[in-house]
């Protein structure tokens, strides 16, 4: 057992994969940026100067402080300034990023679980089930993902009771973005499954008397996971941007629990009055996050693609 773990670690450290990572400056930089942002968001409660969700810690007199300058009433200094309600912009960004990342990861996980299982089944079983699923996918692909997400958000909002809409918004957002992205996953997994299921090792497993479920999970799934990992990374970047877009449009995270998109929406209101920091810092954070994840996904696609080696 121990030897096996040791073996695996040894293999991982000497793999082509790690070699390609070490020799790609873009991958290293974007990995560091993404990791810093994610850790910064996850650990925010331990070091953020304020908790922006707790109205008791806010002082309205602190509103509109410029970055690194003492406030004209209270004399307090804020690293990235404050917004209209006196919330510290640095803290709201950290907490906003938590929401953006949570929605992103949850939506991608949801899309992956749905897409991988439906794709595996469609590819392996075939027949009318496959035809039905792929037709549904075709219909959905006719429309851009963001439009599908908006529509699902609207419908789901209609189902939630009015007094719970703000609390449910995050979950509705996750479902909407997840459902808008499962199609790509399902199509890729289905394609890979169609290729894998005719290979000798699957036939051997079948002759051994393994059941279809066992073959799917034990044999085919591990062999299609490579392509799933690539889509998952790129989907994460897309999901973060989709969440920000929806929240920016006012059909996402509520102002009481702002995500990065909501913060940009709030900041846009002060563009003309000169409080640039309320808008600029959340926007830069969103860009850094989306860009680094996107570049990581690009590198992953090239690194895992044997044709390019």
């Amino acid at each position: 057992m121990f030897n096996k773990i040791h073996d695996n670690i040894f293999r991982a450290l000497n793999s082509d994969f790690l070699y390609s990572f070490k020799h790609s400056p873009v991958a290293i930089v974007s990995f560091i940026v993404a990791l810093t942002l994610v850790l910064g968001a996850v650990l925010a409660p331990f070091y953020a100067p304020h908790n922006p969700f707790d109205p008791a810690t806010l002082n309205l007199m602190n509103g509109f402080s410029a970055p690194m300058k003492p406030n004209q009433f209270t004399g307090e200094v804020f690293l990235l300034g404050t917004d209209d309600q006196g919330r510290d912009v640095f803290s709201t960004i950290l907490y906003g990023m938590r929401i953006s990342l949570f929605v992103g990861f949850a939506a991608v996980t949801f899309a992956m679980v749905l897409g991988v299982s439906l794709g595996l089944i469609a590819g392996y079983v075939g027949g009318w089930l496959d035809a039905l699923m792929m037709r549904i996918a075709d219909v959905q692909l006719t429309f851009p993902g963001i439009l599908v997400a908006m529509l699902i958000f609207g419908i789901a909002k209609g189902f939630t009771p009015i007094d719970q809409r703000d609390q449910m918004a995050i979950w509705v957002l996750i479902i909407a973005i997840g459902l808008s992205e499962w199609v790509q996953v399902a199509r890729v997994v289905r394609g890979a499954t169609l290729v894998e299921k005719n290979k000798e090792y699957v036939q051997a497993a079948r002759l051994n008397g393994r059941r279809s479920g066992g073959i799917l999970i034990g044999h085919i799934l591990p062999n299609v996971l490579g392509s799933v990992l690539v889509i998952a990374t790129i989907s994460l970047a897309l999901a973060i941007i989709a969440e920000a877009t929806l929240s920016f449009l006012g059909v996402g995270a509520p102002p009481t629990k702002p995500s990065l998109g909501t913060l940009i929406r709030i900041g846009q209101g002060y563009l003309f009055s000169g409080e640039w920091w309320i808008l600029l810092f959340p926007a830069v954070t969103l860009l850094a996050l989306a860009l680094s994840v996107n570049l990581l996904g690009d590198w992953l696609r090239d690194a895992l693609n044997p044709k390019l080696k």
Binding site: I241, F248, I264, L271, L286, A290, N294
Partner: peptide
Amino acid sequence: VSLPTFLIGILLIYIFAV
């Protein structure tokens, strides 16, 4: 390609309108 549409819009507003 990486910039979300709404950020491009805000950027253009900032430069050309503000």
